[in-house]
């Protein structure tokens, strides 16, 4: 069972997660017009920028985050932004979309100039997230856990970050037990996705480089 404090933490993070979304106008743009590769690149870049802004808004609502050292806040966001974006995009790809939307989005990403060797692991990740059939609460908590990773480069006060991450991990663990009593491995599987995210993050810099070149 979740304690009152844990339930409050869950509600708070979930509410913040639901509130901060990429503006619908921008999301619509992705589906509507036809673009050249160059315009596609710009649009996806604009989308990524918006994503980061939304992520910062979400993060500052995670209880305790704003009490961290200012430079540590930046180090955490810088270290996790790409992973949080992959998680959010995975959710978009997993959700039931109106007829044809997933195909249009996939086509757009495939025609953005990113080389195939980076695209395949990304779509594999989306698929592996899809298989978990995650609830909105799990997405919100996992995103918060990703952001509050104490081992990011340049974080000075790792213990302060750990103190924020641990209660969120415990809420997720209990939530998984409650929601998936038949799947004792569910929590471990969610944490396993964090490892996959690290790999995607690692490749991201190379991916950007290849994207720029082409």
């Amino acid at each position: 069972v979740l304690s009152q404090d844990q339930q409050a933490l869950l509600n708070y993070i979930l509410e913040a997660y639901n509130k901060h979304r990429v503006p619908p106008d921008m999301a619509k743009k992705l589906l509507q017009e036809q673009f050249s590769t160059e315009e596609n690149f710009l649009l996806l870049t604009e989308m990524a920028t918006s994503h980061v802004q939304v992520l910062v808004e979400f993060t500052k609502n995670i209880p305790g985050f704003q009490s961290l050292d200012h430079e540590d806040q930046i180090a955490l966001l810088k270290g996790s932004a790409v992973e949080a974006m992959f998680l959010r995009s995975a959710q978009v790809f997993t959700r039931k979309q109106p007829q044809g939307h997933t195909e249009v989005l996939e086509e757009r990403i495939r025609k953005s100039g990113i080389s195939e060797e980076y695209i395949t692991p990304m779509f594999n990740f989306y698929k592996s997230i899809g298989e978990l059939q995650m609830l909105q609460e799990e997405h919100a908590l996992l995103t918060a856990i990703t952001i509050l990773s104490p081992d990011r480069p340049y974080v000075k006060d790792q213990q302060a970050v750990e103190r924020l991450q641990e209660p969120v991990l415990e809420v997720l663990r209990r939530f998984c037990k409650l929601q998936h009593p038949q799947e004792p491995q569910h929590f471990a599987r969610l944490l396993g996705r964090l490892t996959e995210l690290r790999t995607l993050n690692h490749h991201h810099a190379e991916m950007l480089e290849s994207w720029r070149t082409s």
Partner: peptide, 21 residues
């Protein structure tokens, strides 16, 4: 344009916007 900003700049600006509020 936003597309020319680095990740850290975008984060700093977004956090600063928060402080101005």
């Amino acid at each position: 344009p936003a597309s020319n900003l680095g990740l850290e700049d975008i984060i700093r600006k977004a956090l600063m916007g928060n402080m101005e509020e």
